[in-house]
Amino acid sequence: MGFNPDVLDVLCPMHLMLDAQGIITHVGPTTQKLRPDMVLQGLSFMEAFNVMRPRGIKTLAALRQAGQVKLHLELAGTPPARLKGVLVHDGGGAMIVNLSFGISILDGVRDYALTNADFAATDLAIEMLYLVEAKSAAMEASRMLNQRLQGAKDAAEEQAYTDTLTGLRNRRALDETLERLLNARAAFAVMHIDLDYFKAVNDTLGHAAGDHVLQVVARIMLEETRASDMVARVGGDEFTVILPKVGDIDVLERVGRRIIDRIEAPVPFNDALCKISASIGTVWIQSSRTATRETVMEDADLALYASKNEGRARQTMYTPELRSSASSANSTTPPKARGTAKS
């Protein structure tokens, strides 16, 4: 039996018909589109095509022997065309090779300017092209959404008011609250708290121990202050508490004492005990007209230094005298040197 070329042109437009000697006798319309200027008819199939796989097939006889396996073929000429194919015998000595682009369908369509008409009506090539294009568009939209979400996340983190390790407020939140209280000429107190011997914990027991201690300390500060007070972590082992509406300096003394006492209780971590303490410098502002965020923090710092110099583990209330004693002491001995001498 033979095959009618007109039928094959419709069913599989990208095919070739060969005679028993392997000479191309008919070229499917889409096959011809791959090499518009090349006369394929009359050429030997093994001349026009290089069999890439199965490997080692150099002759028509070898190809016949391989049977109806999937062939990886390379068509002679340019541009390079790698095709998939299958060869069948028509029973009368002639052969048919049907070809396909396989996964390189996108390149094939572009390189040879193919249209719907170049594929069989039942071929899924067009659906495949549709899907690739639709999925790429959807993927691009998703990618843009992800990018925007990432940007929003970065922006949110930048605007965050929370210290991620302890859950306390951060310096940004502290600065804004201070600014607000000062603008309102409110009465409030600021405690600047610095942990003592924290570096030793970090150095000997590691960062995990240090982080654990910071979390314990944060909880203590929250427990020992009112809900209306603000506790912020402003540096590695530095904290600041803002206490609005404090009626009495004794209240500040008591809160500071309790915080120090509780922080001094050793914190178990794995098999070790972390022993630290805290020094506090406190400023009590009663509706000042001249204080700024900078002067308030400076005053708290001075008081904190005084606590460190007096032997740590204590709270010092800021008074203007501290400023003059600090500057006179400063002129003779640098504060840092005095601090280490005493510890």
């Binding site: 996108l106 369509v109 572009r110 390189d111 300017a113 193919l114 249209t115 719907n116 067009i126 092209l129 294009e133 790429s136 568009a137």
Partner: peptide
């Protein structure tokens, strides 16, 4: 308008 299968939007 032309429609080129292989073009990319």
């Amino acid at each position: 308008r032309t429609f080129d299968l292989g073009a990319r939007a």
